[in-house]
Amino acid sequence: MSEHNEDLPAFCHPVSTKLLFGVFFGLIGLTILTVATSALGTGLGMPPAFAFPLAMVIATIKAFLVCAFFMHMYWDKSFNVLAFLSSLLFVTLFIGMTMMDTGEYQPTIEAFDRNNLANVDVSE
């Protein structure tokens, strides 16, 4: 994993080139996998409903690899990791709250006659 050389200061953790290349080829493999499942997935009998979650799972594995090894999170102070993960919590709140509110004006939108815009009074 991280080479620990006595000559280096305690905060210096160079990651071994072997691990970096390993992560890189892993990421390339996952990219090819995600394009392949998108291109061939339904042809191989995968239900279409699976395609999106599968793509997101693969993207999340890739994000994990990048964060943990390229971004040194594996060796980083836990407070930095906490700060980063807290942003994901707020993104979840942002998306979740907005999604809960999305139906609010749906009746008004549905009542709007899109095909007869000439009949809509826009004077007010």
């Binding site: 995600t34 793509a55 390229f70 971004m71």
Partner: peptide
């Protein structure tokens, strides 16, 4: 480097979200 990896991270999500809709 951290900033650069974050830019990469965002693309990792943008790619399936925009290009791989099937």
């Amino acid at each position: 480097g951290l900033y650069w990896h974050l830019v990469d991270l965002i693309w990792i999500y943008l790619f399936p979200l925009l290009y791989l809709i099937d």
